[in-house]
């Protein structure tokens, strides 16, 4: 039996008085590759913030590896959208990568050799080692995404969460990133926030639809009855929820 990674039981969350998330019940198991899909404002990013411990549920139980998300922090890797970063911030690719293993007790201005070696290894794996001294803001979209992925992976996380990792990259880079994730999925559970269901459906084994409430499907439960419906120029997968989402 596979180990449970994420357990969400009746989770509610509100920023002010209005609930953004209602009764979210879902689970992720070891080596799941799950897509979290839903409309803008449906609560995807809020749910990710709950999982990473940046927010706490108003009601319900949420655990990651059987403990609270705040305590599970070091076991979680997180890749946010790079469009949210200050385009003028002075930081090198190497320093961004090293943030993934930085903790508050590391005082002083410089890094130990073992940390630098670890960073070099992961940067080499992601083919960005030659960019180490470059300024993060000078990179292309694909290079930025790989750098943020390196930051998330340097701590060898057991759960990797990615918030629309391919929203600002071209289609060839998108394919590269998903192939890389598929390879990494052998060692870790992956939760991918995305709009692009058509593209990721060949990679994921679970789909979580979120629009305030949630519905969780294994991929083989997802009915593709959308033949001929292609408003974006390619085939779109439609999911008919029993719960009316």
């Amino acid at each position: 039996m596979k180990k449970s990674v994420v357990e969400s039981r009746g989770v509610w969350f509100a920023y002010e008085e209005e609930y953004i998330l209602e009764e979210i019940t879902l689970s992720l198991e070891e080596n799941d590759f799950a897509a979290l899909v839903g409309p803008n404002g449906g609560g995807k990013t809020t749910f990710v913030k709950l999982l990473t411990g940046l927010l706490s549920p108003a009601k319900g139980d949420l655990s990651v590896f059987g403990i609270s998300p705040q305590k599970a922090g070091p076991r979680i890797g997180y890749v946010p959208q790079f469009s949210g970063f200050d385009p003028d911030f002075p930081i090198t690719v190497l320093d961004v990568t090293l943030q993934g293993i930085f903790h508050k007790n590391l005082l002083g201005p410089s890094w130990k050799k073992e940390y630098l070696k670890k960073a070099e290894e992961i940067m080499e794996k992601l083919e960005i080692v030659s960019l180490g001294k470059k300024r993060f803001s000078d990179l292309s979209g694909g290079q930025k995404q790989r750098t943020l992925l390196a930051r998330a992976l340097i701590s060898s996380p057991e759960l990797l969460i990615l918030d629309e990792p391919t929203s600002s990259v071209d289609i060839s880079v998108e394919e590269d990133i998903y192939d890389l994730l598929k390879e990494m999925n052998k060692q870790m559970t992956i939760l991918l926030v995305t709009h692009d269901m058509a593209f990721v459906s060949s990679y994921v084994n679970k789909v979580i639809c979120l629009n305030r409430r949630s519905a969780c499907h294994r991929l083989d439960e997802v009915a593709d009855d959308s033949e001929g419906f292609s408003p974006y120029g390619h085939k779109v997968t439609q999911i008919r929820h029993q719960c009316g989402l």
């Binding site: 922090g73 946010p80 943030q99």
Partner: peptide, 14 residues
């Protein structure tokens, strides 16, 4: 790190 990415820094316990 707090200046670059406050949320990630919070996740790392800063």
């Amino acid at each position: 790190y707090v200046s670059f990415d406050e949320e990630y820094a919070a996740m790392r316990g800063l």
